[in-house]
Design a protein around this nucleic acid. Structure first.
Lengths: 329, 329
DNA sequence: CTGAAAGCGCTTACAG
DNA sequence: CTGAAAGCGCTTACAG
């Protein structure tokens, strides 16, 4: 059988308390004692039992991450960074999906409670998040990519408004007038902000806002294709901004199918600098999120909250998006 | 504070044993008693403490998944399916990365041990896996996408040899003669099998095997680019097969940079039917893995092992790959 | 500088 | 059909 803390204590000739303190650095232990304990641990191949330790201490070294879906472009690269930072600090990453559905999100939060994660990183689904403040077990939560309505916490999020504003201004200055938007799941704050930036730019340039230039679809290839088809109904359409990478793919497919020249007839730009942007036909202009950095910051923020539970106010960290111009605009 | 099983027992007027049995379905409980217990649970908002239960029962309802990196194309879609199946069965998914390094893999397995996962799904890194048979805590392991050398377990894996063989035969029949291979991380069984299929087809068709037609690189865009450059040194090169999606991107970039016509000068096909294959320049012929199904099968297989620990022999499940022809070949 | 011992919240073998 | 009670392996307040 696996060795227990008692075995280690006996082997090292100390109490289990001392072993525990050596393990966790929770009180001073004499150098020589530490050595003996560490040797015993190595000798016996001792691995602590996280369940026992969790039962006593209410800490599990597990962090939950709630994403729309594991395969979503934004979450994947962020998760990679999160895993790295957490791993370095001795935490494990537990993943669950909301599929942009607030009810599923709630269920998953219950599972996280059940699994007693120490903290949560979360892409909040559209919907009211007041329930988070009512949860019995209070744990730190850091939001990613979006704000959650009705719940204030730390957030790591892109500079959506200005990025969108700048892009649209650029398009307008280069003579585009009818700029369509492929919008993803409704109620996602990050997307709403991009539309806000879009409208702001139109206003500044005195270009009329046309509601039919904003087409909603789910953030899939098909969603992008269909939303693009809808945009093509608008006379004079000369640019499209996609708010989600799969929609960008659907957009390119649709424009090819309808034989529109990019960027000749219609300029295209998309949020999310995917690795295929370069080899697409044509190479597509994108707005790049510093995903890896966002993941690192979010994980670090969460770890800070875990170490200093009584901390100052919540922070909203805005990271700049970078416009990467390619052929499509 | 959160309610405990004792609170529920008192509220329902039964013993904690009965509550536990109702919760886990581990012994018969009278209908009426069950009802009372369930009401009490709901009334008190009781959530079981997984640490306590794990400490006693050695089951944690957690499954570890070890992937090369979270953002790897193959693992992402598989993980989505795994998460779905596990979630439906009340299990949580814990993710860790090996980065194709056996030493990191071992460390992560230690963490999984520490976190007491009930089972593991794993893309084995290149290297010897005998260590898995020596681990103190015996838990079911299912391998994904590759066999692990020195360790027999259930495996869900693509029909790599025949898929590669068929593809190469097709290329040869259409007049391609010098077919280069962009190979990923060395020592990955799935990739080795594809090369085996390649060589088999060459032999059957009586085409000489040229070692310089196989270029290794890490499975990244840059790796693919550089390996492609190396292939261009080979006179008469008229086709390239990429064994990993990021390398396919690097390949397309490189061929564009060197102004080679696809498929005119060089045909291109890649393992991994990514969502961008359609809109690449040119649209690229791929071999599609049924990733979602693979994830489902792997998760199901693991759950079966958990439920029936004393089971028959290990199984190797081969799933067919589908050739999806587009413009590039 | 360290130990003895209580107790976290469950599961489960024993008993009736 | 159900209960009393031991005990899983830790952490931690108390004590010296």
């Amino acid at each position: 059988m696996a060795a227990t803390i008692k075995d280690v204590a006996v082997y090292a000739g100390v109490s289990t308390a001392t072993v525990s303190h050596v393990l966790n650095g929770t009180r001073y232990v004499a150098e020589s004692t530490q050595e003996r304990v560490k040797m015993a641990i190595k000798k016996l191949g001792y691995v602590p039992n996280i369940s026992a330790s969790g039962l006593r201490s209410n800490r599990t070294k597990r962090i939950g991450m709630l994403v729309p879906s594991i395969s979503s472009f934004f979450s994947v690269d962020i998760a990679d960074a999160v895993e790295q930072v957490l791993g370095k600090n001795g935490y494990q990453l537990v993943i669950a999906c909301s599929h942009e559905d607030i009810e599923r999100e709630k269920k998953q939060m219950d599972v996280f409670t059940y699994q007693q994660v120490d903290g949560v990183l979360m892409f909040p689904a559209p919907g009211a998040h007041g329930y988070l403040d009512e949860m019995v077990r209070k744990i730190p939560i850091v939001f990613l990519d979006r704000k959650a309505s009705g719940c204030e916490r730390d957030v790591i999020i892109g500079e959506n408004i200005s990025a969108s504003y700048d892009l649209v201004m650029q398009m307008l200055e280069e003579g585009r007038r009818r700029i369509g938007i492929l919008n993803g799941t409704e109620g996602v704050s990050a997307l709403e902000e991009r539309i806000e930036g879009y409208r702001k730019a139109l206003t500044v340039k005195g270009v009329e806002f046309m509601p039919e230039l904003i087409q909603n679809g789910n953030s899939t290839i098909t969603g992008g294709y269909e939303a693009t088809e809808a945009l093509l109904e608008v006379k004079g359409l000369d640019a499209i901004i996609s708010l989600a990478p799969p929609m960008t793919i659907g957009c390119l497919k649709c424009l090819k199918r309808y034989k529109r020249k990019i960027p000749g007839d219609i300029a295209v730009a998309g949020f999310g600098d995917t690795e295929w942007a370069d080899i697409a036909d044509p190479p597509v202009t994108t707005l790049r999120h510093p995903l890896f950095e966002m993941g690192q910051m979010a994980a670090q923020k969460l770890l800070n909250r875990l170490e200093q539970p009584e901390q100052k106010e919540y922070e909203t960290i805005r990271v700049p998006l970078e416009l990467i111009r390619r052929v499509s605009f």
